[in-house]
Simulated scan of single mutants.
Amino acid sequence: MSYLETTKNVYKDAALTPDVGLCCTTNPVGELPGLKIPKIMQEMNYGCGSTVHARDLVDNPKTLYVGVGGGMELLQFAYFSRQENGVIGIDVVDEMLAASRKNFKEAEEVNPWFNSNFVDLRKGDALHLPVEDNSIDVAAQNCLFNIFKTEELKKAIAEMYRVLKPHGRLVMSDPICEQEMNESLRNDERLRALCLSGSLPLQEYVKMLTDAGFGTIEIRAKKPYRILDPKNYPTEELIYIESIEVAAIKDPMPEDGPCIFTGKAAIYFGEDDFFDDQKGHVLLKNQPLAVCDKTAKALQGLNREDIFISESTFHYDGGGCC
């Protein structure tokens, strides 16, 4: 049995018998006016963060969500579009699709604005998306890509890139780990299915995205996730896993490399009202400006005593230099 088959079986069982906290942390459910999320959807929220951000969802975007879970984020995406087939949900597990359809009927009862036909559920997998090229404004996955090994991960990212429109957004939440994992952990099919042993270092994760062609990367959140300890897992050291929320934007790749935002800011505090680097970055006096890592490095290279560059906060909330 391959690790992908093991994953399907894990989530088949999770669809038939909801398993709270199966693979992921319990996150607060975002409160939105007039949106009520059925308890069963919250119990089947098999994700390690959120991929639903209001600033991504303006002007009725066509949205794709891969790995439907209990349908909670599909319902949240539908809240912003409210149109027939405005949201596409894809899953390889029949039982998970059936559970979502059932959950949407319950959601209709507590949300007068919602209709199940707002969500187009399709059977398919992340490696062969049943979606047309350049047709999606916002694509999302939550705690899915970390399950894949390298070659499958490359295919999954390439598929998301294919279906997105120019400047479309791939919004993701996944575990990451900066420590090296031994082969026993990496090859444990169930631990990989449980969103643990497939975790990559952040730099490697981001490189996968930029190698696929995404010209802008936003690190929106990084927070504690799980511990793998020697008493309960095949490891001789304590392993710390974090979760991240990331947006990869299908912008053209700049000639000097991708713009990767990790929450750095530049602050000019000189004698003039502003500083202009003549490369598109204007720093108003005493006003923090979010800058990508590339711009931060260039500003540091000027060796000015009146420009301060902060360390990465791993929280980026829009705006900034690009």
Rank of each mutant, 00 (worst) to 15 (best):
Q76R: 11
R101K: 15
R192F: 05
N115V: 10
K105M: 08
I136L: 09
L127D: 11
S81K: 11
I90A: 03
I157A: 00
L200R: 13
A126C: 12
C143G: 07
Y161L: 00
E84L: 01
G89M: 03
L194W: 14
A140D: 04
K165G: 14
S116Q: 15
C195W: 00
V138R: 08
Q76H: 07
I136K: 05
T216V: 13
S197E: 06
N182V: 05
I88C: 00
D120K: 11
K149E: 07
L194Q: 10
S100I: 07
N85S: 15
G198A: 04
A107F: 02
I88A: 02
E84I: 04
Q203K: 12
G86K: 13
Y205N: 12
L129P: 04
E178F: 02
L75M: 01
K102F: 12
R162T: 05
D174W: 08
Y161I: 02
V92F: 04
P130M: 15
D91W: 02
M208L: 11
F77G: 01
V93T: 06
R190L: 14
E106C: 02
V206H: 05
P166C: 13
E204Y: 07
D188Y: 09
L202A: 10
I88K: 06
Q141N: 11
L209G: 12
G124S: 14
E151S: 15
S197C: 07
L200I: 03
E106R: 13
M172P: 07
V87S: 05
E151A: 09
A139M: 08
L74W: 02
S81E: 08
G213R: 02
A99K: 00
F214R: 04
L129W: 13
R220H: 03
R186N: 10
E178W: 02
Y205E: 14
E73D: 10
H167E: 14
V93P: 03
V131P: 10
I147C: 04
F104M: 07
N187Q: 07
E132I: 14
E180T: 10
E108D: 03
N187R: 05
V138E: 13
E180S: 07
L196E: 09
V93H: 07
R82A: 09
M181I: 14
T216C: 08
D137N: 12
D137C: 11
E106I: 05
